[in-house]
Nucleic acid binder design. Structure first.
Lengths: 156, 156
DNA sequence: CGGCATCCTTCGGGATACTG
DNA sequence: CAGTATCCCGAAGGATGCCG
């Protein structure tokens, strides 16, 4: 349980690395427990806001648009429990509580930037693929089934 | 709608880039529609398996452990609709259907490898943070509330 | 083999009201 | 201000059965 452990057992840079992991029987994808955390409707947004410096509860409530009191609290608790947020309570009256991201959370945020880049790069392509798919569904509804191997996809 | 568009409007390499995006009023995180896709319980696993070459429906059913027929079909349809999978039907009897990932999906997979790396690097730290958090909860249950600013987090 | 249709359960998450 | 507690709903997902 040493602290300064910044080594990754084996960096995965390419798909080949992932394949190798599979061969060795290990998991090449983020564990569900992690994905479920960031998959929640609010976790990432909270991390983004809290990465800009200490932020108070009510500030978050206003900034993270659409979040309910309940979900804000729940998500904050989970993130805190996972060591992604640091919660500081000032025992004043009225109470003041500040949240800010840990370095670990910032690293996750940076990793997620790759996903952001992907979506920015391919969002148009996804939209086009959907149009094609939906249109084919309609056409297929009128005509009979085709006799040749069917490939549905969008040209890249 | 040109095809060979491999340019990203603005590559996000650092948190500073993301901050800049925020200033300009743009979204620094992957859109929900994308996150929701990969957040599903099975999408990523399917992409991983299908990235190794054409794979048949029943093969997926056996490989992706725990998936139900229903969810496998649903997830495959969604991925296909988004242009992440290419579905090939051989009109033989009995029918044969093969799925394989598109280049776009492979790029997403590679982006997710960063998240995988993150979780491999920090999983122990997260586990430790949870233990600390849970232990503090118990201690706090017995004693009164503390009078000094409380910081709950794990040393990094 | 590769689905789709149906039913049912679980859980994330919203609305609202109360509290130290 | 910063929460907790309760109720409720819709969507995700599991189980099962039928079908071309």
């Amino acid at each position: 349980m040493s602290q300064g452990n910044t080594d990754v057992p084996g960096q995965l840079k390419t798909l080949a690395d992932a394949q190798a992991l599979i061969e060795s029987g290990q998991c090449p994808i983020p564990p569900r427990e992690i994905l479920d955390r960031i998959a929640g409707k609010w976790a990432i947004q909270i991390i983004v806001v809290a990465s800009r410096g200490p932020v108070r509860f009510t500030e978050l409530e206003r900034t993270v648009e659409g979040v309910s009191r309940r979900m804000l609290t729940l998500t904050l608790r989970n993130l805190e429990r996972d060591g992604m947020l640091e919660r500081t309570v000032y025992p004043t009256v009225p109470p003041k509580v500040e949240y800010q991201t840990t370095p670990m959370a910032l690293e996750l945020y940076e990793a997620l930037l790759m996903v952001t880049n992907w979506s920015r790069k391919h969002s148009a392509c996804v939209a086009l693929a959907r149009e094609n798919y939906d249109r084919r569904l309609n056409e297929e509804a009128s005509s009979g089934s085709s006799m040749t191997p069917t490939k549905i996809g969008v040209a890249m």
